[in-house]
Amino acid sequence: MNSEILSVDDVKHIARLAALRIDDEEVQTMRRQLSDILAHFQTLAELDTEGVPPTGHTTDAHSVMRDDEDMPALERDRTLANAPFVDGEFVRVRPVIE
């Protein structure tokens, strides 16, 4: 019902920003679902929020810094144990710059 809010190209662009590959059928489904949800969001426009500070989190905790002390970190072999592709002591990835 609100499928006009986002175009097919909009959805493809957002998917690219999110590094998420979706096929043509998913693009159509997402376009419909996202447009419906975005339409619901419009209800917030009714509220006057002029000058209201945003809430990022709800407690009074502010920037929490610990002392800069050496501490043991996870050992390399345990860190690498979950990596799908490992080369010696490195994680292997596909080329970033071609």
Partner: peptide
């Protein structure tokens, strides 16, 4: 072929 594509495919 490259890191970008492999990340997108994995997440997809």
């Amino acid at each position: 072929p490259n890191a970008r594509e492999s990340i997108e495919a994995t997440r997809g």
